[in-house]
Nucleic acid binder design. Sequence first.
RNA 1: GCUCCCAUCGUCUAGAGGCCCAGGACGUCGCCCUCUCACGGCGAAAACCGGGGUUCGAAUCCCCGUGGGAGCGCCA
Length: 472
Amino acid sequence: MTVVTRFAPSPTGYLHIGGARTALFSYLHAKRHGGRFLLRIEDTDRERSTEAAVQAIFDGLTWLGLTADGPPVFQTHRFDRYREVIKRMLAEGSAYRCYCSRQELEAMRAEQMARKQKPRYDGRWRPEPDKSLPAPPAGVPPVIRFKNPLSGKVVFEDLIKGRVEFDNAELDDLIIARADGTPTYNFCVVVDDMDMGITHVIRGDDHVNNTPRQINILKALGATPPAYAHVPMILGADGVKLSKRHGAVSVIEYRALGFLPEALLNYLVRLGWSYGDEEIFTRERMIELFDISQVHKSPARFDMDKAIWVNHQYLKSAEPATIAPEFEWHLRRIDLDPRNGSPLTAVIQAQRERCKTLVEMAEKSRFLYAESVVYDGKDVAKHLDAAGREVLADLGPRLSKLTRWEVAALHDLVHGYAAQKGLSLGKVAQPLRVAVAGAAVSPPIDQTLALLGRERTLARIERALSSLHQRA
RNA sequence: GCUCCCAUCGUCUAGAGGCCCAGGACGUCGCCCUCUCACGGCGAAAACCGGGGUUCGAAUCCCCGUGGGAGCGCCA
């Protein structure tokens, strides 16, 4: 049987990083077994679902490259089907109408809580062979409840958690359709998973308690329950559920933070899963090695430092051309024109080892794309003193006479000058660096000059000298 | 309150009874390399939640405790 998994978010906000990991696990499990990964939008709650949220989820998944093998399924497009199934269940007796008012239910819950019991529906409208039901109150639209088995156990082998058991006595008759006729979550999930031919439900830990109910409905419908895998959630650095106050929670925020999608995915896959001592996994390798049953049972904390380290690994080793589009996105984000400077791949090549994020790379490359440099006062004071100015004055003419503006030639020129003057390289490179880049940090000086180009280099040396004269 | 789940360095993890006085990675701290920042190299500190069992032998199996988490809606 072909493996079919799905990611089923409800569009009430952005794509959460925890959701992204769940999606990744579903995706990997499907691919690992040559199966299909599907997407379903659980938008039955019209109050909270928004068009923008749907788009945000699509955008997040697209950026991560977790593409579904088929068009997304929208639950709101399937109401006819749900109605049909409910009609059938009513006819077969696996569901019934309940006329309790909300107030009545609330009172029931309050009373149970007071008696220190688990709040649950007491089955007052549940039809039984020898039971006589009250006459339905007039004018009250009923909800539909599922007739859950009263005794016995629901047992399932969770691929991550192992054997999980629930007593049916712990479960109550959940509402599958509201008074207005719209179906509810647990019911829709069951019908959809069945209709979509889902073989493996991989979802967040917070759904374990829903699983026995869903299995019971599935059985009442005569369907075979899929396999389940409940993945633990991601915690913030403080061990508490990850939320906005921990910083970035939405996938798109990680893009803004300067992450590469592959790097984020890599970090995420290692959260709760590992393969020996390996840390870096290409997508192909993840697909080859990922085993859902090896995922940890316990929740993991999100460690930004490690995530950034992984990102740096990708920045350092990925093909510059694959990084270029993201780098361009970041340059534009800080109002720099990617065409107004050296080719992106050359800059990436020069900057990658000193930048852990693309934000940093864009920022550190500002002097290569902006018309004017912003000088760091401290660095200017430190390196463009009298001696530094002398170096610049000497180097200007020599540089302007250089015939080949290439790394090797620039290297020889700078080194040759230092040797000739008996200066350490630092005494030459630093003033030059500050003059052209505005600060004491940049790629090796020969590369820096090569990337900047002759014209800008000479102009900036000029400007550094003249503005210093003004100050002096 | 009730139900379910979890527990190895600060963090992510290796470990499926002897290979473990517990290995790797991030982070931290030294040292080396060096034109800056980095990269890199070398090294250090750092953990089996507690208590009982089982066993010749337990981080690994069992029980209890403690601590964490999730769920208990006409939300999803």
